[in-house]
Design a binder for these strands. Structure first.
Lengths: 345, 345
DNA sequence: ATGAAAGCGCTAACAG
DNA sequence: CTGTTAGCGCTTTCAT
């Protein structure tokens, strides 16, 4: 089918070795034959067969990325920055959606390893589980992003780039408290994932710290979908003693909660406060203006990719990269501070 | 590094051929040796080297996808449905962002072909240009999605899945006319792409059909970004004789235009009407409720992937698949029909 | 500077 | 039913 170096060698009446040198611009060949070979290769529209190269070099120049769902508005930025950084360094990206399902995540992992990707960037929905064992055992280069395994025996053997989820959760609730809320509901999903666990932990810490009463009924875990979040919030709003504010641990879900609040006839922020997490692209749109916690997903992607490729290329095992990015509170209109002011320290 | 069939063959004291048969569950081997080999393979955590397989089978079980930008809220659905459908059939997906740049698109194409992907799904930003020539010449399986080449000599040799952009554009403007608008601005980007060209053509047709006056100043082409669309709209609104409605050929840009209208102090839809295109996930959010034209991107992705894989697997060149999906107008609150009613037939 | 030949991991002929 | 062998396209010694 395709044109091979053999064809070129024949056309140029040289050996395949010469062609290889010429194509890869490596010394050991006269300038004349080199240019001749390159000319012929171009004429024949030669495209090197990466599969054959991989077989020798043990490199595929491809990295694998496992995320929950590219349709979740948090991930496109991450995927984009990974692809871009990878491309700059000559790598392509295979993308897998796990849907937060353990079997799909595992399937993707094995699939990628079999495809000889050179490394994997993983946003695992599971803070525990054997995912890492497989990777570590094979000596496979990988970097965790967005989420990390916790309490894992091999915990020190991993590189990761995350944000300070604990601080983010803390600041969200602290902010709600300061503008006057005492009854704060927390809505979360994917509670097997470290980022969600940490956000909840931070939020609860702030509650304790400020002496707020922690009604256990105010903490709801639902499946990951806007609709589920909406239903959860509706339930809370229908309580005898409903919360006056929501900390929703994900902007996309927060949009569902927002629908629930508005459809109940309550106003945001006058009647009910709302804080999300992630600062997705859409959060700033006029009329939505969601107060949220910034999640520099593009920076995360760039850093993770660079760390990964460095690991791949200097296979010398160096120090582990454990990066935690700042979590910044972004105050917009769904939290009411501009109405009430900061009434409490 | 990795475990190979040689290692397994040695451990099981059989030949590599036997291992190959056992691993691939193919006949020609006794049940006893098969299970023994499989057991050992599992123990050694054997993962077959796909690069070696590809070299023989000329199949990589990978498809390439070139889109403009996964960060554009139109694409995640498309990418998701492609990945899902591909995975069901045993294929992985390499994703490339072209940013609507000709060189990046070309680079992605060549890169993918070199990586021995088995086929390519292309949402090309260019309705003309040599992209197809390369593909057709190499006999490479490909399917166009979302956008197609126009007036290309090889025009009949291509499969595609698109929506009826012309009808979509027509209906958007027709709708604005019916609810009372005569001065309609059109804002577009990526005007090298067939979908945008067709939407504009449909819109202009409707204008002519209904005898509306077509002020050339009302047609603006800008770079693809919310901010650019915002600025373009601001310019139009500042005219002596500003338009009373906008047809923006893409929901994401429509959000930018929406900001411009609102920040000018005008109300939507009372003062200015707005229709977008794509029905992105956010279009339905309360307070935004963008009237738009539906774009079943998930259906598009699924169909395109199935067509592509069928082509790959029955390399017998069959009939071309040329699929045009319906473009449905989705009436929400940014167009005002519920206020004025359909005043004109 | 150039060519011949070995081999990456696997599959598919063929021989036993 | 099993083992031997050639070869996919490329890179890389090693001779020449």
């Amino acid at each position: 089918m395709g044109v091979t170096i053999k064809d070129i060698a024949r056309a140029a009446s040289v050996s395949t070795a010469a062609v290889s040198l010429a194509i890869n611009n490596r010394p050991g060949i006269s300038e004349k034959t080199r240019s001749k070979i390159r000319r012929i290769a171009k004429e024949l529209h030669y495209i090197p067969n990466l599969a054959a190269r991989s077989l020798i070099s043990q490199r595929s120049l491809t990295i694998g990325v496992i995320i929950t769902d590219i349709t979740d508005p948090f991930y496109p930025q991450l995927a984009r920055s990974i692809e871009e950084t990878a491309d700059e360094r000559g790598y392509s990206m295979i993308l897998c959606n796990s849907d937060g399902d353990f079997r799909r995540e595992r399937h993707g992992l094995e699939n990628l390893m079999g495809k000889q990707v050179d490394g994997i960037i993983l946003s695992s929905t599971f803070s525990e589980g054997p995912a890492i064992d497989l990777l570590v055992e094979k000596g496979f280069p990988f970097v965790f992003t967005n989420r990390i395994p916790v309490n894992h025996p091999l915990g020190d053997d991993i590189d990761y780039v995350i944000i300070d989820n604990y601080a983010g959760g803390y600041r969200a609730v602290e902010h709600l408290y300061r503008i006057g809320h005492d009854k704060i509901a927390i809505i979360a999903a994917h509670m097997t994932a470290s980022n969600m666990i940490e956000r909840a932990r931070g939020a609860r810490s702030a509650m304790k710290e400020y002496g707020m009463h922690c009604n256990p009924d105010y903490f709801i875990t639902c499946e990951y979908s806007r609709r589920r979040a909406l239903l959860a919030a509706k339930g809370l709003l229908a309580m005898k003693d409903p919360p006056t504010a929501f900390f929703v641990q994900d902007d996309n879900l927060a949009l569902g909660v927002r629908e629930a609040i508005l459809s109940s006839g309550a106003r945001i922020p006058e009647d009910v406060g709302l804080v999300g997490f992630d600062d997705i692209d859409f959060a700033g749109v006029t009329g939505v203006e969601l107060t949220t916690v910034s999640h520099r997903s593009d920076e995360m992607g760039t850093l993770a990719t660079e760390i990964l490729i460095n690991k791949i290329e200097n296979s010398a095992v160096g120090t582990m990269n454990k990066i935690v990015l700042e979590a910044e509170l972004i105050i917009r209109k769904t939290c009411g501070h501009h109405l009430k002011g900061y009434v409490r320290p």
